[in-house]
Amino acid sequence: MKLSIDGVKLSYASVPVLHGISMEFCEPCVVGIIGPNGAGKSTLLRCINNVLKPKSGWVCFNGQNTHDMDAIEIARNFGYVPQEFSTTFQATVFDTVLMGRRPFSSWRISRDDVEIAAGAIKMLNLEQVSLRYNSELSGGQQQRVMIARALAQNSRVLLLDEPTSKLDIRNQLEVMDIIRALVEKQDLLSILVIHDLNLASRYSDKLIMLKEGKIFAAGDPVSVLTQDNIRAVYDVEAAVVLEDNLPHIIPKRPI
């Protein structure tokens, strides 16, 4: 598996958001994209699976440019959990997860599709609410449903835009453990946008730190999550403590 991103630029109207982002991933791992609000994290994620079309640059998956892939082929390779999703639409949890099979099933849903969706529901511990409507669930449960939907896509790359933003700390850890386990068991590449630097440190193999649409720092958590980088990117004074060889961030004050 190889995912290359080369010189991706994107503007909203005339405001540039991404200024030529390049990176490459050759092996299954968890990649955390961090940075302050407006740094272009979610935009970058949406450029990877072509939900947004970059102004220039390209994204290549296993040697094939995503511009040359049709929407279904992209959906088969990239599972995606958006940051915002409608929570008022009237679908049950099971039907929502089953939607993840759309790139494979078009309009006819097979027994295999139903079984795969049930597997994803089981994995995210949603069995008890599988026939309830999304609007009846808590924010955290809804987020789990969307993650289960992405898992049902059985794709090689999982793109998650703030997958734990609505979850309490126990659920955050559980969901991140599931993502971690999936990456290890199924050799997936998981790229996730995350605001919680301590979760990012604990669960990511690599971190990409963005500032104003450019990569400010990239590498393993120890090399990226330094006091200097946090001060330069977030304008925050923070202490960094190493725990189990992983950086633990204690924010102190804004600069």
Binding site: R46, A75, P82, E84, A91, R102, S106
Partner: peptide, 17 residues
């Protein structure tokens, strides 16, 4: 079925092809 998917949001529907 696609009408169901579009109910979850346009961006989400795009990501499913």
């Amino acid at each position: 079925w696609d009408l169901n998917i579009i109910g979850a949001g346009d961006e989400s529907a795009k990501s499913l092809g």
